[in-house]
Design a protein around this nucleic acid. Structure first.
Length: 824
RNA sequence: GCGAGAGUGGUGAAAUUGGUAUACACGCUAGAUUUAGGAUCUAGUGCCGCAAGGCGUGGGGGUUCAAGUCCCCCCUUUCGUACCA
């Protein structure tokens, strides 16, 4: 039989589809299930090498888990709302929904050609009403719990895309999608109160040992929890006070000024007078027109203006100047900073520029004294408190606690935890997204659409070009409605949701994707959740992967799911780059499609080439050179092995005993079991490259002519194809059928290593003299040092190195090394 | 700046706990076969050296009988973050 991959591949794809091989059981055993999840795709066109790599990783694991007898759920769907659909639609004058559906169709067909074991019966697309109905339902549940709220404030605005962006969508002060510099805009927006979950989002990272450490670190830093104090300073000549947040209360006696963010509301209540007023106003205006990228640069020279007002330090009664400075962020803490030039780099630079006092209140230790006149930078480490009244001599954390405790006792401050994480802004002034199910009524305010009236359907309008306000605002038949509460005239919210909302709960919908009355049945979700392995790119570390954990926690709180965390194990595959090392992306125009390769060399060989090139977590510079070796292996070595089958119908569950095999056969049996162990382990670590090298060695060592035991011959061949099956499913299935099996190879049992075979009787170990390898000896596996010595010293080489020298020491590690330490 | 990874032949890469560095491939060299081949097979292939031998996992130190693996300093590079008080 010739290796006709085209025939083999189309035949089995059709057969698997017809027999619903990948359909996950509706009733699964929660103790014996495996939920294999890959990040669903944005249908931006056809799939490329990056997708290809992502999905074959998940596919190999899903197939192996099937063979391990698990109830496997391996679904797929489409993250189908979003900006690119609109952009492409405008360029091509075609409706986003038509464009999206067309792309879904093409992408789905390609994925089917790749032979991915997706359960297509559960397919979802976030832009279809039967899905986004439940996205709206999610919104309403959050709203009911006070976790979805509307607020006016400064938001990130992309002038190119003409929409609001979440913090997670701004990179280096630029729009993540189009690279345009983001500006600030005052706007009414919906937010999800993710900050209520900030503590749990940080703490529960410790319950995820199978998540990569770098992702957990990135999330911790993004959430940015810090412990400190909030302290109130009285404003001089007024009853009002001004609150600051600090993590360094031990430096509070060194405060010589305060810096207020230009946007901070407290500025308005200061009653700035005289000459100061226009100067402050002018500075505020200037700060607002500067872009975030300018303002947030750490190298930017700090500037500000004095307000003419003072505050009183509650610890020592000193008057400190109040300044406005745009290095202070309005959105963090209270938007006001107590400035301690001696112990903060930024405050130091500012004080130097404006000639403000620098007062040392921390010494590095008892014997080192700082002099503010000689300092050329701030001393920012912990140390001993000095010039700090009753607190003098206290150090570090103890000092901090004492200072805050005093504030609490005197009722002008308290312990405080702060986060960098901000509430999630989810309104988008765009057409192609999930409509926000809220009505604005003059009398009742914001009123949610009753759940039984969902979905609020997105109307199919012709004009969806961005104008700076939502295109839906210009569709009166959509906007004008009646208030569900009072029945009076009202308006629907004209914004749509950030697509990250759609992707925050899709993994739950797969489990019960057709359900019309609830988002999913709790009982069904309990059977398959949590996700056992989630495979996707690192790019989602601080976006999607925080949002979907947030949703899971919220749904647990309202009783819809049982687990606090959605995914037990996370795996980030490496990027696929072109031969220059640039990441393949549509915008760069350097994407390679796997289709050409698959048509030329076959799907199985293409998959094998990608697996073999590098371990799954490493970046890959794709070139078709990678294919040569695995193609030779497949076509010339592995596939022809099936011709050596002797139709002996071996029992695949049995182990062979040494007595039943001759010497060559037994050595091959040992190799087989070593490879079974190696391949199983490689799958566990998702390092398929080493699994393949193991298979290559096994096939190389196999020699039909030297095998007389027919059952062993067939046993070895069949085990080889079983191990190859998750990597090259079509070829393996073909051989399985050829060998006479009725059921799919994926219904057979994954090979189990015969441990007794890989315990060897003798072992070849290295003999070192002073740590340098000089010879090798073969010794019994569990021999003692004496025996090993006897054998080692027979070696001529060992003799030549030890003669006439003192043997200081002999180190013998069983099965590993024999080392002689000599002197002289 | 800060944080986390990474650095091994000409190339992609192996080396579960410190224990024979370079498995498995690509490429290259030589030979065989073929009308011919970018096909196939065989042998060789870390570096220096005729050899014995020496040197070798970014560089420099250290711990150890033994270091790619552990510790310290430095260099290069990728990713994340960017005035978070």
């Amino acid at each position: 039989m010739e290796y006709n991959f085209k025939e083999i591949e189309t035949k089995w794809q059709k057969h698997w589809d017809e027999t619903s091989l990948y359909q996950a059981p509706d009733k699964a055993d929660p103790k014996n299930k495996f939920y294999m999840l890959v990040m669903f795709a944005y249908p931006s066109g056809d799939i490329h090498m990056g997708h290809f790599r992502n999905y074959i990783i998940g596919d190999a694991i899903a197939r192996q888990q099937m063979m391990l007898g698990k109830d496997v759920l391996h679904p797929f769907g489409w993250d189908a709302f979003g900006l690119p659909a609109e952009r492409a639609a405008i360029q091509r004058d075609i409706h986003p929904s038509d464009w999206t559906e067309k792309n879904i169709k093409i992408s789905r067909e390609t994925l089917q050609k790749v032979g991915i074991s997706f359960d297509w019966s559960r397919e979802i697309a976030s832009c279809f009403p039967d899905y986004y109905k439940w996205t709206q339902w999610m919104f309403i549940q959050l709203y009911k719990k006070g976790l979805a709220y509307r607020k006016r404030g400064f938001v990130n605005w992309c002038p190119e895309d003409k929409t609001v962006l979440a913090n997670e969508q701004v990179k280096d002060g630029k729009c993540e999608r189009c690279g345009t510099e983001v500006v600030k805009k005052d706007q009414n927006q919906w937010y999800f109160k993710i900050t209520d979950y900030a503590d749990r989002l940080v703490d529960d990272l410790d319950t995820l040992p199978e998540w990569p450490e770098n992702v957990k670190t990135m999330q911790r830093e993004w959430i940015g929890r810090s412990y400190g104090a909030e302290i109130n300073f009285k404003i001089d000549g007024s009853d009002e006070s001004i609150a600051i947040y600090t993590t360094r209360p031990d430096t509070i006696f060194g405060v010589t000024f305060m810096a207020i963010a230009p946007e901070a509301e407290i500025l308005d209540s200061l009653n700035i007078e005289g000459d100061f007023k226009p100067k402050v106003e002018e500075y505020k205006k200037k700060a607002m027109t500067r872009s975030d990228i300018e303002r947030s640069s750490a190298t930017d020279e700090k500037d500000g203006v004095f307000t003419g007002k003072y505050a009183i330090n509650p610890y020592n009664g000193e008057k400190v100047e109040l300044w406005v400075a745009d290095y202070v962020l309005a959105g963090y803490g209270t938007g006001v900073v107590m400035a301690v030039p001696a112990h903060d780099t930024r405050d130091f630079a500012f004080a130097k520029k404006y000639g403000i006092d620098i007062k040392v209140v921390i010494h590095p230790d008892k014997d080192t004294v700082l002099d503010s006149n000689e300092m050329d930078d701030a001393y920012t480490d912990y140390g001993v408190m000095v010039n700090s009244g009753q607190f003098n001599g206290l150090v570090g954390k103890k000092a901090i606690k004492a200072v805050i405790d005093f504030a609490e006792k005197e009722k002008f401050g308290c312990h405080k935890v702060n986060f960098k994480l901000k509430d999630w802004s989810i309104s988008r002034q765009r057409y192609w997204g999930c409509p926000i199910p809220i009505v604005h009524c003059k009398d009742c305010g914001t009123v949610p659409i009753p759940e039984e009236k969902l979905p609020v359907e997105l109307p199919k309008v012709k004009d969806f070009k961005p104008k700076g306000r939502s295109p839906l605002a210009d569709v009166p038949e959509y906007i004008n409605t009646l208030c569900p509460k009072c029945g009076g005239e009202a308006e629907l919210d004209s914004d749509t949701m950030d697509t990250f909302v759609c992707s925050s709960w899709y993994f739950l919908r797969y489990i019960d994707s057709k359900n019309d009355s609830v988002p999913f049945m709790k009982e069904k979700v309990a059977q398959y959740m949590p996700v056992d392995l989630y495979v996707g790119g690192i790019t989602h570390a601080t976006g999607h992967l925080i949002y979907f954990r947030f949703f899971q926690k919220f749904l647990k709180d309202i009783g819809w799911v049982n687990d606090s965390e959605p995914a037990k194990r996370l795996f980030n595959h490496g990027m696929v780059c072109d031969s220059n090392g640039d990441v393949m992306s549509k915008s760069k125009g350097n994407v390679t499609s796997p289709i050409g390769l698959m048509e030329e060399r076959g799907v199985d060989v293409s998959r094998l080439a990608m697996f073999f090139t590098a371990p799954s977590d490493k970046e890959v510079l794709w070139s078709s050179d990678s294919v040569t070796g695995v193609e030779k292996f497949t076509v010339n070595k592995l596939f022809p092995m099936h011709e050596k089958l002797r139709n002996s119908k071996p029992d695949l569950k049995c182990y062979f005993k040494r007595d039943n095999l001759d010497e060559f056969e037994y050595s091959l049996y040992i190799k087989l079991n070593q490879v079974i162990k190696q391949v199983s382990d490689s799958f566990e670590r998702l390092q398929f490259n080493t699994a393949i090298s193991g298979l290559m060695e096994l096939v190389r060592d196999y020699d039909s002519d030297k095998i007389t035991n027919d059952q062993f011959n067939d046993f070895l061949i069949l085990k080889t194809f079983q191990m190859s099956a998750p990597l090259m499913p079509h070829l393996a299935e073909e051989v399985w059928k050829f060998a006479g099996f009725e059921n799919s190879i994926f219904k057979s049992n994954w090979p189990v290593c015969d441990e007794s075979a890989i315990v060897k009787d003798t072992v070849v170990i290295g003999v070192q003299i002073n740590g340098k390898l000089r010879d090798e000896i073969e010794i019994p596996m569990d021999c003692n040092q004496k025996t090993a010595e006897a054998i080692a010293f027979k070696s001529e080489k060992v003799k030549s190195y030890t003669e006439g020298k003192d043997i200081v020491k002999i180190i013998f590690v069983k099965g590993r090394i024999f080392n002689i330490v000599v002197k002289g």
